[in-house]
Design a protein around this nucleic acid. Structure first.
Lengths: 272, 272
DNA sequence: GCTGGACCCTGCCACGGTGGGAGGGTCCAG
DNA sequence: CTGGACCCTCCCACCGTGGCAGGGTCCAGC
C-alpha cells in the first residue's frame, strides 16, 4: 500500500539524486529556496518528498549556469513573463563576461608569447582638434562593446549627413575608469553633423605612442604610456585619445595601427 | 635641486596615478605585494616613490586581466621562464572560462527564448553494447572540451585501424559529477581496436529520451530525464549514455539529434 | 598661532557560495 | 546493544573589495 516513490528521503539520499551537496541543501533551506517537506521537530532531521527532486534538479541546473541563488529564488516564484525577463538578464550577464574574457585573453596571449612589447613614447605639441562626437556612458568592463556602438552611431551620422570628414576616427576615454564613465567616438570635421556633438579638444603638450595589433591589446599601450608619463614626473590630464590610423576592414587585427595620446600638464623643468 | 619627480607620493595621489583604490594599495601592502617605499613610523602614513608607479600599474593591469593577487606576486618575483609559464596558466584559465560560459550561454538562450523544451521519456529494455572506448579524466567544468578530445582520439584510432564499426558514436558519463571523473567516447564494434579499450555495457531497463539541438543544450535533456526517473520512484544507475545519432558535419547545430539513455534499477511494481 | 577640511590611519564587517571540521545526537542492521 | 553510517548546529576559511566607525595628521588660509 505504501509506495516507495512517496517515502520521504533523508538529506543524503536526496542530495545524491539531484547533484547537490548536503551542505548546499542545508544552505538552500536556510535561504528558504528549497525547504524540506518535513523537519523532525525533536531531531532536526530534514526529510524531502521525491516530488521535490525536480525543483532541486532545477536549482542544480541553474547553479551550473552560474545563476545567483537570489535570482534562482525569484525565478522559482516568478510568472512566465518575469521568468523570461530574468533569464534574459542572466544571459546578458554571461554574454558580457564572455566578451570581457575574450579581451583579457587577447592581452594574456600577447604577454604569454614573450616579453611585453616595447612602446616608444614621445612628447609632442598636440594641435587643437575640432570633432563631431557621439558620446556613450558605460562601466569599465563594457568599454569595448560601448565603443563599437558609438563608432557605429558615428559612422551612421556621418553617412546620413554625407559631410566631408577627415579620417581617421578617434576615441576619447577618461583616465579614471569608473562606473558610468563617459566615452566618445569622434571624427575630425569643421561642419556640424546632425546626430553628433561638436567638441573641440584644446591644443597642448601630450605624450603619445603607437600601438600595433588588435584593439583588445591596447591596455598594454596604456600601461606603457602611463608608466612613462609618471616616471618622467609628468601629470596626465585626460581624456586619452585613440586615433584609429589603420582600422578593421583595412587590415587584419594584428596589423591595426592606433596612435594613443594622453595630454599632459605643462611642467616646470627641473633645474639640473 | 630637489626634483618634483622624486618627491614621495601620499597614498591618495599614488592611487590616482595607477588606477588603484587606496583600499587596494593598503591591502597589497599588507600582502607584501606592493609595499610603500617609506612608512612614517609615528603616523603610519605610507609614502610611495614615483618609480613605483610602473609596478603599481602592472598590478592594476594584471588585476584587470583577473589574475589572482597570489599569482601577481609570483609574477613580479619570477624570472622570464617562470613568468611565461604563469601567464600561460592564466591564459588557459580564462580560455576555459570562456568555453564554459559559452556552453552556459547556449542553455540560457534556449531557456530565455520560451518555455523549456518538452522531453518525451520512455522506459526501454536496453540491449548489451560492446564498445571500443577511449577514456578521459576531467573536472565537471571541462566535460565539453574533454569529450571532444576523446572523440577525436577515438576517430583517430578507428581510422588508423580501419575496422568496421557501427555508427553512431557514443558518450559515457558518470551520474556523479566530481573532480577527476572519468568519461568515455565509444564506438560499437565486435573487433579489438588498437588504442581503445573494449567495454561491454550490460543489458537492462533504461529510461531514454531524444534531444534535438546543440550539444551545449544537453543539460536540459539530463534535467528532464533525471527528474522523470525520480518522479517515477525509479533509481538511476549510471553511467549515462549519449548516442550521437545526427552529428556535427552531417547537420547544423540546431538539427543535431542525440539519444540520452540512463540505465535504471529494475523496480518492484507497486501493488495497486 | 588657530581652524577647517582634506587626507590618512587601524580595525571590523559585509558580500557570494561552498567546503572543512569540531562536537554531538540519531537511526538501523547485525 | 553496539558500531558505523548518517544527521544536526555552529564556526571558520576562501577571494578581493567596499563601507563605516573612530580617531590622528597635514597644510593652506586667516
Amino acid at each position: 500500500m505504501e509506495r516507495v516513490r512517496d517515502e520521504p528521503l533523508t538529506i543524503g539520499r536526496f542530495a545524491r539524486m539531484c547533484r547537490l551537496s548536503v551542505k548546499q541543501l542545508r544552505h538552500y533551506d536556510e535561504l528558504g529556496l528549497l525547504p524540506p517537506d518535513r523537519v523532525d521537530p525533536s531531531t532536526g532531521y530534514r526529510y524531502y518528498a521525491p516530488a521535490r527532486v525536480r525543483d532541486a534538479l532545477t536549482v542544480a541546473l541553474l547553479r551550473d549556469l552560474d545563476v545567483p541563488l537570489q535570482v534562482i529564488a525569484e525565478l522559482l516564484a516568478a510568472g512566465d513573463e518575469e521568468r523570461t525577463r530574468l533569464l534574459r538578464a542572466e544571459r546578458d550577464r554571461i554574454a558580457a563576461r564572455i566578451a570581457r574574457d575574450t579581451e583579457r585573453l587577447a592581452v594574456l596571449d600577447r604577454l604569454a608569447e614573450g616579453p611585453a612589447p616595447a612602446y616608444e613614447v614621445e612628447v609632442v605639441d598636440d594641435p587643437a582638434l575640432r570633432l563631431a562626437v557621439v558620446r556613450g556612458r558605460c562601466d569599465p568592463d563594457e568599454v569595448g562593446a560601448r565603443t563599437r556602438e558609438c563608432i557605429t552611431a558615428l559612422l551612421g551620422a556621418l553617412g546620413r549627413s554625407a559631410v566631408g570628414w577627415v579620417p581617421p576616427l578617434h576615441g576619447l576615454y577618461p583616465l579614471d575608469l569608473e562606473d558610468g564613465m563617459t566615452i566618445a567616438a569622434g571624427a575630425r570635421t569643421d561642419e556640424d553633423v546632425p546626430g553628433t556633438v561638436a567638441t573641440t579638444l584644446p591644443a597642448g603638450p601630450a605624450a603619445t605612442t603607437l600601438h600595433t595589433g588588435p584593439y583588445e591589446q591596447l591596455p598594454l599601450a596604456y600601461h606603457a604610456l602611463q608608466a612613462w608619463i609618471h616616471e618622467q614626473g609628468l601629470t596626465a590630464r585626460g581624456p586619452a585619445r585613440e586615433d584609429y590610423l589603420v582600422s578593421p576592414g583595412e587590415a587584419e587585427p594584428h596589423e591595426l595601427l592606433t596612435r594613443l595620446t594622453i595630454p599632459i600638464d605643462p611642467t616646470r623643468q627641473d633645474t639640473p
